[in-house]
């Protein structure tokens, strides 16, 4: 029963991924490729679709994990301040023009910010040998505000092309995607995904509460730390690939649970697949509807995502709030 549903999710995702490669401002017939078509696909569309898929995979999976470790259905990967830390350092880089690594400069500076933000939020959430979910959540909210206000300060006192890029990037900018980013993003995201799926049983137990998780034979502090590391890895990698794209981490895990239940051994991988497909779709819409102007994917996901999320909130039985 749920196997069929999972197959449907996978098939739909593959379909959306292919659509985002072949459709766009210029539709390409995959059965009659011209030389230009090949160039468009291999130089622009395919790397961009892969980056979108990787980012969505990371956001979907880390959202599912984070909602579990925080025991909070409204958690999303950005609530921890990891993304705003990344946004801050990326903007610093963009505005100062101190980019020494070519195409890799922006992802690299973003990753540095995400990395330090993870350590800061993790250490604020740390108490008596473990991460405390409520402390982690509040520390994340506090840090996000701090990082964003410094970011806004930077943007408000600068006035050039760097600012426009920084703003675009904050809302998710996939136009910088090229092949050079993919191996690095792929490795980090697959490592995080593997870590989280390998701890899925522990996450199930943690969702029942720390005491039951302990009673079921799990080391609560150790498991929560490993799961936090997996979230930090995936979020940092995703943000540094293409900016902060909202709502995927929040909504996708809820939709997946609605269809297939709460078992994280299935929820995490299926949220990953669906997150990837959703971002591919959002990117396709963003680059097509107002072509040649591109709408940043983060705005598209939020415009589709927010109303759907509000609708879910109205249907209390879905979220079980």
């Amino acid at each position: 029963m749920s196997k069929t549903k999972i197959l449907i999710f996978i098939a739909a995702s593959v379909f959306i991924f292919s659509a985002s490669v072949f459709l766009g401002p210029k539709a390409i017939n995959p059965f009659a490729l011209t030389g230009t078509d090949r160039e468009i696909i291999f130089l622009i569309r395919l790397p961009r679709a892969i980056v979108a898929a990787l980012m969505g995979i990371a956001l979907g999976a880390s959202g599912a994990v984070l909602q579990g470790i925080l025991r909070n259905p409204l958690a999303d990967p950005y609530i921890l301040g990891i993304s705003s830390g990344a946004a801050l350092t990326a903007a610093l880089g963009l505005l100062s023009g101190l980019f020494f690594f070519g195409n890799l400069s922006l992802p690299l500076t973003a990753f540095i910010g995400a990395f330090f933000a993870s350590i800061i939020v993790g250490s604020f959430g740390w108490r008596r040998g473990g991460i405390w979910p409520d402390r982690l959540l509040l520390a994340g909210v506090g840090l996000s505000f701090l990082f964003y206000s410094v970011l806004m300060l930077l943007i408000s006192i600068s006035s050039d092309e760097g600012m426009r890029r920084a703003l675009l990037w904050i809302f998710g900018d996939l136009s910088i995607a090229d092949w050079s980013l993919i191996p690095y993003g792929f490795l980090l995201i697959i490592a995080g995904l593997y870590l989280s799926v390998s701890r899925a049983k522990a996450l199930n137990a943690l969702m029942l509460g720390d005491e039951l998780a302990h009673s079921l034979g799990f080391s609560v502090n150790r498991e929560r730390l490993l799961l936090f590391v997996s979230v930090a890895l995936m979020t940092a990698a995703s943000v540094s690939l293409g900016g902060t794209i909202g709502f995927i981490g929040l909504i996708i895990p809820h939709i997946v649970r609605f269809f297939i239940g709460a078992d994280n051994r299935i929820v995490i991988p299926v949220s990953a697949i669906c997150g990837g497909a959703f971002l591919c779709m959002a990117d396709l819409i963003g680059k097509s509807v107002m072509a040649p102007i591109e709408i940043p994917s983060g705005i598209v996901t939020a415009i589709i995502g927010s109303p759907y999320f509000l609708y879910l909130l109205r249907r209390r039985d879905v979220l079980n709030l």
């Binding site: 509460g209 649970r257 239940g261």
Partner: peptide, 14 residues
């Protein structure tokens, strides 16, 4: 040995 807490407030669709 097994322990069950007083509150079993699970709000997820298990």
């Amino acid at each position: 040995l097994c322990y069950l807490p007083q509150l079993l407030d699970i709000n997820l669709p298990f």
